[in-house]
Simulated assay, not measured.
Amino acid sequence: MYYFIDFSNSGEFSIYLLTPEQGTDIVAMNSGDAIFISYKDTSNQDVSTTDFSEKGVSDMTDNEKQKENYDPNKIKLTPDDDFCGLPPKQYHEMKRRKKSRKRPNLIWKHYFNFRQMDHFPRSGFINYGAAKKMHSDQALCPETLSQHSFGAVALLQQIRDRYGKKIDKSILDRAILFMQYHDLGETENGDIPDNPLRDPDADNKEYACLKRRLKYSKRKLRKQILRDFKIYNQNPDTLSVEDRIFRDLCKLADKLDAILRGLIYESSGHYGILHSKYNHYVSEGEEKIAEIMGSETLVDIFAASLVIHQHNCYYYDIFYKILKAAVIDVRGEWFDQWKSKKARLLAL
């Protein structure tokens, strides 16, 4: 047996007795403007009723106005979506309100997962000794994953503003969105050095972590970021032109941001070197690059690595010009004997 209680704007209410059905318990469900009560007669006997005398009570069954004889202690509220006898329009409105109540909590949960990057320092600057953990000098504070992501996004935004006529804006916007999340998958295992000693299963581990961290995001966003993460780490020769441009812009922004950050450390007098006492992950490739560059500084090796691995990227020339402008601004000159060094680097 079901009762529908309808509240008017004047404060009056109407109770409608609906078609009796078999239920399981007495359940009260609140849609915001109305309450639905389901009653089960466990004795299989008629439920005794009395007439209503309250003003505003009407009867949809053409029977006498009735009052339910039940135990209020057995009534329980439930968030169940199954609102008995609710018309489609009201049902969808109820669903909308329920979803609306969840939004603040979902935003917080996603924000909490996203800001986990704040706790993980970037390994490269620590390994090279340009920055150390828990150092009193703020100039030596290691960069976190959050700061790196912000730097890469800021770099792409500047490129969009300055070179927007040369590069498809929709692809740039896609890259800007992705770079906010590209290192979120490192928040369980920490930043992993991007050199030949890198764990071959690192991408899979980061993908699994990223998927967990995006648990509370909108399904559309989660699907896009996870898809783009795979593209970001995929062999570029297997990608469509649009995906390749997206991937290249992200890679270039990721690598150039690290070099520019290294120059900022340099400007404070902290260069960072390959064979620092903190660096336990020196690879053979880095040794060869240091030999060619005639330098062990972080910026020299990172810049050379950018040239070696990203020179075939779309729009590489834009990022290369930014790198050159930054080096000259901080150091007063470009790398000496660069033409011969570049040829040797590309031959590796």
Rank of each mutant, 00 (worst) to 15 (best):
T238H: 03
N63H: 11
D137V: 00
A34P: 01
I273P: 00
I259M: 03
R344K: 15
S100K: 05
H135R: 00
S295A: 11
Y281V: 07
L140F: 01
P236L: 04
A131T: 01
L184C: 04
R344F: 03
F178H: 11
T42I: 08
I301S: 04
D71L: 02
R160D: 04
Q158E: 15
I273K: 12
S146K: 06
S136C: 01
A208D: 14
A208Q: 14
S295D: 11
L323N: 09
P79F: 07
Q66P: 02
S43H: 11
A34C: 08
D203W: 15
L226C: 10
D161M: 13
D300P: 03
F83P: 00
W334K: 02
F4E: 14
R222T: 13
Q157L: 14
H311C: 04
T19R: 15
Y232F: 15
S268Q: 09
E186V: 03
N73T: 06
H110C: 05
K215A: 10
D237I: 10
Y314R: 05
R122M: 15
Y181F: 15
N279I: 08
K65S: 14
N9M: 03
R212W: 01
S305N: 11
L256K: 00
S136T: 01
I322E: 01
I259G: 07
T78V: 08
M117E: 09
E242R: 05
E12F: 00
S123L: 10
N105G: 05
L214T: 07
N195R: 10
D59R: 13
T187Y: 09
R96W: 04
S38Y: 07
L145R: 06
Y315M: 03
A130M: 01
R213S: 07
I192M: 06
R115S: 09
K215E: 12
I289R: 14
R198F: 05
I231M: 08
L306V: 04
S268L: 03
N69Q: 09
S53N: 01
C84N: 08
C84T: 11
R160I: 00
T238R: 12
D228C: 03
E188A: 02
K341V: 03
N189W: 10
H182Q: 14
S8L: 12
N44F: 12
E242V: 01
G190P: 13
E206A: 12
A154I: 08
Y2V: 11
Q224I: 10
K102R: 13
Y271W: 04
I37R: 07
D62R: 12
D62T: 14
E21F: 02
D191M: 10
D25E: 11
L252W: 01
F150Q: 10
R122P: 00
W108D: 11
D191N: 13
E68L: 14
Y271Q: 08
M60E: 05
R115L: 07
I75A: 08
F302R: 10
